[in-house]
Structure formats: C-alpha cells, structure tokens
Amino acid sequence: MGMNNSIGYYPGCSCSKNGLAKYYGESTVKILEHLGLKVSEIEDWNCCGSSLYRVIDEKKAYLLAGRNLVLAKKKSVEKIVVPCPACCISLTKTLQKIREDKELEKKFVEVYNTGKEDLSRIVVKHVVDFILNDVGLDKIEENVKNKFEDLKVGVYYGCQITRPYASFDDPEFPSSLERILSTTGVATIESAMKTKCCGGLLMLTNEEEVLKIIEKIMNSYIDRGAQCIVTACPLCHLNLELAKNILMKKYDVRYDIPILYFTQILGLSLGLESRDLGVSREDFEKISRKIVLTARR
C-alpha cells in the first residue's frame, strides 16, 4: 500500500498487554499483519485521559492525549490506528482543539515544542474505519480462508465508535461492521440498539441503572436469535461480559453467548489460530461448529 511506514498504532490502556481488552489489541495487530500491513506501536505512549481526566483538568487532559500525537509526529506517523473508540475521541478532540484554541496551541509549543502545523497532517482512525476504508474489503476477501456458515452474529457498535466526531459512517445506523463481517460469511443480526450506549464507566458507579440498559441491549440481539455478540470497543466488551455474568445468575443460560471482538471473528475467518486471537476455548467451541473451510478460488 506504499504507506506502511507512516501507520502508527495506539493501543491505549485497555487494549495494551496489561489491559482487560488485550486480545482486542492483539487480534487487531495480528489481522493487520496478516493482511500485510505493518503498523508500529507508538513508543512510550501514555493514557489518552479518556473523559475522566477532562473532569480534573481540561488543559492538562489535552496535553496528556497530545503527548501521543507528538510522539507519533516525531516518528513521522501520519495515520494512527486506534482500536478503542474512547481513545479515538480523546486524540481526535485534542487535534481539533489545538486547531481552534490558540492558547492551547501556545501551551503545546511551550511543553512539546510542537504546534498545530506540525500536528495538522495526523489522522486518527478507528480500526473499523481503517480496515474498511484503508485496507478495503477486496483485500480481506482475497485472504479469507474459512467462512462461517449460518453463524448469527449480533453486531453491537456501542456509542462512541461513530459519535460524535467520526465521519466514516452514520452516527446512529452505521453499517461498516456488517460490511466487514460480510466477508466472513456470518449472518449479522440487526438491532435498533446497536449504537445505544452500554453505560460505559457508569457500570462502576451506577451499576443498577446500567445493568437495565445492557439487559435491553442483549435482549434485542438474543430475541432475534443471535448466537454471539461482537463489539469493537473494549468497554462495551467488558460491560457486556460483566452484565452477562450477572444476568446469567439472575435469569438463565439465555445470556450465555460469547461476547467477541469483531477482530476475533475476522481473524478466524482469515485462518488465524483461535489461541493467537485470544478466543477462549469455550467460546471457540460455541462458534466453531459454524466454520466451514472455503476452497481457495
């Protein structure tokens, strides 16, 4: 693709090797490598600050997130691929803010010796956007080895992947994930809840309210026959997992379906090992019956 050197990868805390979504991060890197795209992790990256740090100190929050942009810039990275939607928002918002806010820009020059001109060429992309619009479906289709036969997948985007700054898809009714997954042969299940919020961090502070919301979300897929739910967000994944455990205790096995990252399904389809993708044995057993080997054309 001729631009390999300029693609940076920002895992963020969740998708890093010590994070709860490390398999999301790992499977992302694995499939990109498998498709021949070298992405290099931004060295010595730090936490994006999420929405929490902005509550503490707005300007410092931008400086925090911005440090990663500055590091990327130093390595001449022009495109940063990010698996976590919240990190994506922090980085994008910081870029936008530097452009608009002269005082903040001054601060950036003061702290990092880097201004908006230096950072203006950087593009932050969520991995869904990157896979669909930069890698492209053709490239994936060429590399698909296994097709899922009749696996009913609930596609859950969560809220922040397309909101509020992303422009690669409709903010409420996106279709990027369905398009990517169409290459794997799965049957995607449509839900009106697909971009409704999972409650995010409020799972920690307001568990009761958030559980009600997630129950609704999971029902909307399970009612329509979903055999697994895929996400593209570490927090959605975590919340759904947490809720699943609680709901299973409260009700029945109805909620006992695998919660996967879309990169894991895609990876399996590309012929990668479930172990390398971090798909647990239990989950793999539940979905593997649906895999058929496609003869190469």
């Binding site: 509550v55 707005e58 922040q160 971009t195 961090l201």
Partner: peptide
C-alpha cells in the same frame, strides 16, 4: 454525573450543541 458521554444527544441536537462535552465541563 449520570451522563455516560454516549453523544446521542450531540448528534441529534438541532442546535448542534455537544451536550456530552457540556456535562464533562459541568462536572469539572
């Protein structure tokens, strides 16, 4: 404190107000 910053309000607001950011600011 109950806003989960899902930004659904922000993308639907006919006055194009980013109420998610608004809530973060109020928390601060």
């Amino acid at each position: 404190w109950l806003c989960s910053t899902c930004y659904l309000c922000a993308v639907r607001c006919p006055a194009k107000i980013n109420l998610g950011e608004f809530m973060i600011s109020l928390r601060r």
